[in-house]
Design a protein around this nucleic acid. Structure first.
Lengths: 211, 211, 211, 211
DNA sequence: AATGAATGAGCGTTCATTCAT
DNA sequence: GATGAATGAACGCTCATTCAT
């Protein structure tokens, strides 16, 4: 991954000029998740991904601009789903506390049911500072904003302490979720283990934030 | 980085048979921190590190087995310092709450005063799952153990809630610190910003954990 | 050439997993013969071979495991031809003396018509004792066995002296052929010079061995 | 070994400007023989030779111009001894046949009592055609001349067949000796095995050459 | 003279990407 | 669209050689 490559790669909205029809794109993404999770972004060869996806090496370049673009697209698409799920579901909940509860549960639940993806997001995404800064950070910021506004709402409601910066709290919450996910993904994960951790985490956070 | 290389590389305590005298080793480590922080582990060329350290390319191999070994040594040595600082200072403190406070402050303080190192540890270290699993995890575990035993002590003392798993709490706390560090290192960090965040974080955690 | 590499490199029958179709492999072998003959195995760069073969550097690695494997394959394939030629043709001849005559003539003839190959076999193959011992020796032994059994047959027939060890004689004959080839390949070889030498050599040997 | 390096390296009669006193030079040569025999010229590192000789790496360059020069000097000095021994002893013998006998016995005897040197001469010397052509060939020619003149003398005496080219015979004899030495050096050499082979070889050659 | 830490040119090999089929 | 053989730039590492001590 050329450091410089991040700067320009997303200049075209869609990396693929005319995305050909079919499930191949999705198969490649799945193959990439699997391969990145197993070997890491840099150690994974494009041909490994092709093999995992059951396509020829060259086919990948019909759907993605280059290797970086696979990771970027992966992150973009999966993360977008998470954000829109949250945007759709959170408003339906009555108060800040239940929203925080839901938010943590959604994120940890998503990770628990897609372990490979969890590894890719918690581990592989952090390939380089520049990648994070130039590509991931903005989208990540968006996610943190969702969190922060839940906190801010709660402060306005009066249910949460008002002496805290919503953004700092959001970062800390995100970090704690990420930390749990990471250690879970790395360890010999028992099923449901992550969900159980979620309950305790939520509990601590909610109590720590309550007015 | 060969995935397999982690398995054996640290078999000898010291990668360099007879580390020649001098400050060169330290200069190389510093050059590596700087270079990894700027470009990421994989994108950093060994010759970049050499240039940053002001030595010839070949000199690096007098002090380190290979490129991997630089990262590993980096992590090992800097992390060891953190752990031993904690092991030395924590017992002097009177109760669990002040120990948690100190622990968070030490870790965030260390990061704030060594921003490049912070980047390397929060970002570059996560190069591959296998790296984490095979090399970093054990040492990381050691660190979490220190945290967990502070929590467990507090539970025995009666100052902390007893319905929480110390290990889960430790992971979450570590994650939240790591998350703050990451966003700080990536952002345009104002001086003291991290320290300020630390206060709020500590406050939430302590309140969340209190009996 | 790692000394150790000979031990395992031939573990798979065919170094190339799925040798792609085409004449490229043969072109590379020819380029290698030319290059090794001109510069010697160690001094020849892989890129020299590629250039001589008219392929890209990387292409070589589609057909050969590594540089060593080129030399090994070269030797293996060309030597095998010689051995099977002998195995096919010798039995047709009526007596030991004519077989010896033919054998010498075949070997020297093969060398005379492939001067570069002659150089590679007489000179470059002797890169290291370990190479000879671990790889070349067995195949070489096979060749000597063919020779030795011709001698032994002659002794049984009664046409050759019986007070000599067939294997020692085979080694000496091989050496004398090799010596002539070497000096011929190194010198300013007149055409037919080697063939003329062959006649004299044969004559001496046959007379020296006759009962 | 740069191919080009042979051309110029011997331009100064003595590679070492002022050969410093002492046994170091000899120790280095012995270390080199041992190391070359074990690992081959190219695979042997200069530091290996230094270790075998019990001197520092840099010391080698006080006695030899470079790595090539070690091999060249080795060959030169040891071969010179052989040639002068022959030049001294052969004239004392009464006839061509006993001279041939002695010559073979001297050469094989020298090899048998210095196995490492035998390996170096039969194997390592053949590093590259250019080395042989530019450096070894002349001295080698000198040796062959000694042999050839013994043959020519015998032909003039009438004891040897006159229909053979003395030079071709010399090459073949040298080759046969070399072949025996090589297989002996590579194999699990029993003591005296080479001497025994010598008797048979001599016998065949003498009979083959007799008028 | 002797040392051995330091140097840096040089090369084998990998692998993302291309393109003829 | 799909393929996969071919490409060649790029880089980690080695090791002969130098030179300050």
């Amino acid at each position: 991954m050329t450091e410089a490559s991040f700067r320009t790669q997303r200049s075209k909205k869609n990396a693929t000029a005319v995305p050909p029809r079919g499930d191949k794109r999705e198969r490649i993404l799945r193959g990439a998740i699997q391969t990145f999770a197993r070997k890491g972004f840099y150690t994974a060869r494009v041909s490994d991904i092709a093999k995992a996806a059951g396509v020829a090496d060259g086919t990948i370049y019909l759907y993605f601009k280059n290797k970086d673009d696979i990771l970027v697209s992966l992150f973009e698409e999966r993360f977008d789903r998470l954000i829109s799920t949250l945007r759709r579901e959170l408003p339906a909940l009555p108060d800040a506390v239940s929203r925080i509860r839901h938010l943590i549960s959604i994120q940890l639940g998503a990770m628990e049911s897609h372990r490979d993806l969890a590894e890719v997001i918690t581990v592989n995404l952090r390939q380089s500072t520049r990648f994070l800064r130039q590509y991931a950070a903005p989208r990540f910021e968006e996610y943190l904003d969702v969190m922060a506004s839940v906190i801010a709402d709660g402060q306005r409601e009066g249910s949460l302490r008002q002496d805290l910066s919503p953004m700092i709290v959001a970062r800390a919450i995100f970090g704690s979720i990420d930390g749990l996910t990471l250690t879970w993904a790395l360890g010999s994960a028992g099923p449901g283990e992550l969900t159980r951790a979620a309950v305790q985490l939520t509990d601590v956070i909610v109590r720590g934030l309550s007015a």
